[in-house]
Simulated scan of single mutants.
Amino acid sequence: MLASAELFRRNGYTGTGLKQIVTAAGAPFGSLYHFFPGGKEQLGAEVIRESGLLYGELFDIFITPAADPVSGIEDAFAGAAVTLKETDYADACPIATVALEVASTSEPLRKATAEVFNAWIDRGTKAFQRFGLSEKDARKLTIAVVTSLEGAFVLSRSLRDVEPVAVAGEAAVATARQLMNAPEAK
């Protein structure tokens, strides 16, 4: 599934063919339908769920160990900018890539992306609550971070520039500061 995740991240779901997947995996063509009788759509849903778990760990890498939410958010967005540059803008979030393509045309893939996004929101909410935010504000901040980062990936890949990531990071930091200074957070 790792080969499929890489292809979906770089080419999108519709831009990735079954022959590419089995070739990249070094597997016989028939094995795809043996393990995924639902074909590419079933494989896609599983790849989304598995990749989503890995990307969700970014909250544990950047936010959980941070001294405060601002520094964690700054580090996460800086890391995203570095990854984009180092991969020539090819490696962004595969979940958003697939969600944009198929949310209106494939209910199994839409559900898989929704599960992943909900898992990220839950994980981020817990991470930000550690800094004294209420559950409501921690959820709001998580959604702001995820949507800012996902939107920044789209713009950065298209513009081939990390400026959108920097601006989105600044906006997410501003939201964190606002919520941390709100009366409910104190």
Rank of each mutant, 00 (worst) to 15 (best):
L2N: 14
S4F: 00
S4D: 01
L7R: 00
F8W: 05
R9G: 12
R9I: 10
R9V: 11
T14N: 12
T16L: 01
Q20I: 06
T23H: 03
T23V: 02
A24K: 13
A24L: 07
A24I: 05
A25M: 10
G30V: 02
L32M: 15
Y33E: 02
F35I: 11
F35L: 12
F36T: 01
G38C: 10
K40A: 10
Q42K: 06
G44Q: 11
R49A: 07
Y55P: 08
G56W: 07
F59Y: 14
F59L: 13
I63V: 15
T64A: 13
A66G: 07
D68Q: 11
I73D: 09
E74D: 14
E74Q: 14
F77P: 03
F77A: 00
A80V: 03
V82Q: 12
T83Q: 14
K85A: 10
Y89C: 10
A90G: 04
L100G: 13
A103Q: 01
A103T: 01
T105G: 10
E107F: 03
L109M: 11
K111P: 03
N118R: 09
W120L: 03
I121Y: 05
G124Q: 04
A127T: 06
Q129D: 09
R130G: 15
F131S: 02
L133C: 02
L133F: 03
A138N: 03
A138S: 01
R139D: 04
T142A: 03
I143W: 11
V145Q: 01
L149F: 07
L149Y: 01
E150L: 11
L159R: 15
V162Y: 06
P164H: 12
A166M: 07
A166H: 06
A168Q: 01
A168W: 00
A174Y: 01
A176W: 00
R177P: 10
Q178S: 09
L179C: 04
E184H: 06
